[in-house]
Design a binder for these strands. Structure first.
Lengths: 197, 197
DNA sequence: CGCAGATCATTCGATATCTAATGATTTCGC
DNA sequence: GCGAAATCATTAGATATCGAATGATCTGCG
């Protein structure tokens, strides 16, 4: 089950159940690049490789936490957007799509599922018949109120071993990077939508 | 694109648009949770929100860099796996799928595309007719050798403003987090596959 | 007023992925 | 040796997304 992509050297360590799997995977890739393309500087490999792997693991855990509620990350995100908006927990589809960085078509699909689950209703908007008021039903309110703490628990538990200072440092470094990215000319199109919040 | 390795010559300082968009978005969500669910501790929001947004932006930039080669992140990942393996640039489908954390079906689909583009060939494996040797063609070798530096350039350029120490600190914090995640009992299923390396 | 263009949700067709089933081939227990 | 079980790539069917086209409704300019 352990990975070991046809590397240069056979693994010297006993397969004691990958102890630092992500780090080792990323290190191995770094080393392969060094020998295969010594002309290019592979220094970004560590940061991007780790970010990708961390996110995969976290989203997998969140999916697990959401399964008992018959929610996916996608539908959970819609419900949280409504819940965060505060009473009466209603937003227009356009608002939701923008907040989730999702296409209109994608949102329609999520709304259909959630409406079928009776977690939300599409109400008419009195003054503009082009749009809607998407609103949590009381069932939707219940389910999202229960699901939210489970997701936060999973996320907090994962971070806990870092300690408050470790989390603070990680957050600080991520913010610096985020600011740097924002500081670009930034006609960047966003196209995947994994953000759970 | 802009080759700013040294001097202080930002491409264009136009602070009119959102200057710290990610940070502000995440802060806003954090605040909404504080008022809407004061009973739960929303501290994870910053870290996970930033990781998600950072990754989205990075992958969007990489897609852009790959477009001229008619490659997607998915097909690029297959070619890099082969390229990293070293001459003669061949691996079995199973090896590639494991290295990319991809299902067999997903890999078959990527291989079909790349074979149609004449970037790789499926050769028989002499001693085991169940499997194959997937090998870069010379066209595939050429295209991946050109594409790799472009992707690394994009990634490096994005990190550059952090400076060597900033990158070091970010990497260190990410490694700590990755190790913490690995240290769990780890019956975690991985299900999305965005890692470009 | 009244119509041209903007805005909005939805539908449509395409793409990329997953899991499960399939069929070919190899390995192993006896 | 041989047949059952494992291994491997592929196919089939399902899901989630996207961009573009569609149709309904609003807005603003003459």
């Amino acid at each position: 089950m352990t990975d070991e992509t046809s590397g240069s050297k056979p693994p010297s360590r006993r397969p004691t159940r990958a102890r630092a799997a992500m780090r080792e995977q990323v290190d191995a890739i770094f080393t392969q690049w060094q020998t295969e393309r010594p002309d290019i500087d592979p220094s970004p490999v560590h940061i991007y490789g780790l970010i990708g792997r961390i996110q995969m693991q976290c989203t997998a855990l969140i999916d697990e936490a959401l399964a008992p509620f018959e929610l996916t990350r996608g539908t959970y995100d819609v419900l949280t957007a409504l819940r965060r908006a505060g009473a009466p927990y209603s937003l227009s589809p356009k608002q939701i799509a923008q907040s989730l960085l999702l296409s209109g078509a994608g949102l329609t699909s999520r709304l259909n599922k959630l409406e079928a689950q009776n977690y939300l209703a599409r109400l008419p908007e009195p003054n503009d018949r082009r749009t809607l008021r998407v609103q949590l039903t009381s069932a939707g309110e219940t389910v999202i109120n229960e699901a939210i703490p489970r997701v936060f628990d999973v996320q907090r538990e994962l971070l806990a071993p870092l300690g408050p200072e470790g989390q603070q440092r990680l957050m600080q470094e991520l913010m610096r990077f985020a600011d740097v990215i924002d500081g670009r000319q930034s006609e960047i199109k966003i196209d995947t939508v994994p953000v759970v919040e």
